[in-house]
């Protein structure tokens, strides 16, 4: 019985040394029992440094391999465009894309993305009589050399200057943008190839911007 009493009073595990060492007594515990406590000491600076390094590394990893957070992008591709490049390109689709790229770069500023231009200032391209001609020659000339002075588009009068884009755009880009203009926004014009652009460029190699009257004399086809 006495043995049991002793065991009930010493709740420490009995070691071979026996005795009543109070290695389990901790300071700071209100109830004075032997439960573990924790001191309040600052976080080691090394952990803060590690936090910064790991956050940086984890962020770099995620940004490099996020695939644009697209559900269609699997390893090893990084963007949807990369995946699209694996597939045969539909030439018509690719041409339209190219034309749109050129248009968005140089034409949108004045003629707007919807091809309606600005009333009184820049003529529209959508449904324009100049655009929907049977042949593209006038349009190619216009793009290559620009136009200035008074002109009538769809019965409206305009008097402005369009800079020449021949020095800036290559033949295929001219062909692409003219094709785009002639087929977009309900326009029903034919497509244009770079082979059609090259002779026109050569023919007018040193000329300045057109005037409307001059251009109207150029055959359409």
């Amino acid at each position: 019985m006495s043995k049991k009493k002793r065991q009930s009073e010493t709740n420490k595990p009995a070691t071979s040394g026996g005795g009543d060492t109070d290695f389990t007594r901790q300071q700071g515990n209100r109830s004075g029992s032997s439960e573990p406590t924790a001191d309040c000491n600052p976080i080691h600076m090394g952990l803060i440094v590690l936090l910064s390094i790991l956050l940086f590394a984890a962020d770099m990893q995620l940004m490099a391999h996020r695939g644009g957070f697209e559900a269609r992008v699997y390893e090893p591709y990084n963007t949807v465009e990369e995946v699209e490049l694996q597939w045969p390109i539909d030439p018509a689709v690719e041409a339209r894309r190219k034309g749109k790229r050129v248009y968005d770069t140089v034409c949108t500023a004045c003629h707007q993305g919807n091809g309606l231009g600005t009333a009184g200032q820049f003529p529209p391209l959508a449904g324009s009589d100049w655009v929907n001609e049977e042949g593209p020659n006038r349009l190619i000339n216009l793009v290559l050399h620009g136009i200035q002075g008074p002109m009538t588009v769809n019965g409206q009068a305009y008097n402005n200057a369009m800079p020449p884009w021949g020095p800036v755009l290559k033949d295929d880009e001219v062909a692409a943008v003219v094709t785009y203009i002639r087929s977009e926004w309900g326009n029903k014009g034919s497509a244009v190839t770079p082979e059609q652009v090259a002779p026109i460029r050569q023919a007018g190699a040193d000329r300045g911007p057109w005037s409307a009257d001059e251009l109207l004399k150029v055959p359409v086809k």
Binding site: L54, A57, A58, Q61, G68, Y74
Partner: peptide, 18 residues
Amino acid sequence: LPRWIISAGISAKWLLLL
């Protein structure tokens, strides 16, 4: 699985070192 899902898991796993 799409690339981003696995990359998110990997980044989180690196942070577990903390």
